[in-house]
Amino acid sequence: MNFGILVNEGPYQHQAADSAYLFCKAALAKGHQIHRVFFYHDGVNNSTRLTEPPQDDRNIVTRWSKLAQDHGVDLVVCVAAALRRGIRDDNLAPGFRISGLGQLVESGIQADRLVVFGD
């Protein structure tokens, strides 16, 4: 099955980004596909490569990047939400791309299920 994921909250502040990631990992482990993870609202803050958590904490951003690298997951950051929050191409972590809200709607159309994680 092909899943679309929407992440509406930033990393570290709210569990949404962790729940979404662990859902993706479990889905891939079961042989499903993740069509796309779309980051909206404060969720766009999951995509900045300037993130530097302490050594003993999980790195939420590189965890997403690895998901893109290992499984070809399309990580899309909403352009309007990103620009509002200072996220641009030059501070984007590997595997992420900035695009429009149409990518979220397309994910809803193309994926078998769309699961929303947020506050």
Binding site: N8, Y40, H41, A81, L101, G102, L104, V105, G108
Partner: peptide, 19 residues
Amino acid sequence: TVYALESLEVVLISAAFEQ
């Protein structure tokens, strides 16, 4: 919070996709 405004933006886009 921003949710109401940003929800409305997705609504307009999905209308453009003729859903």
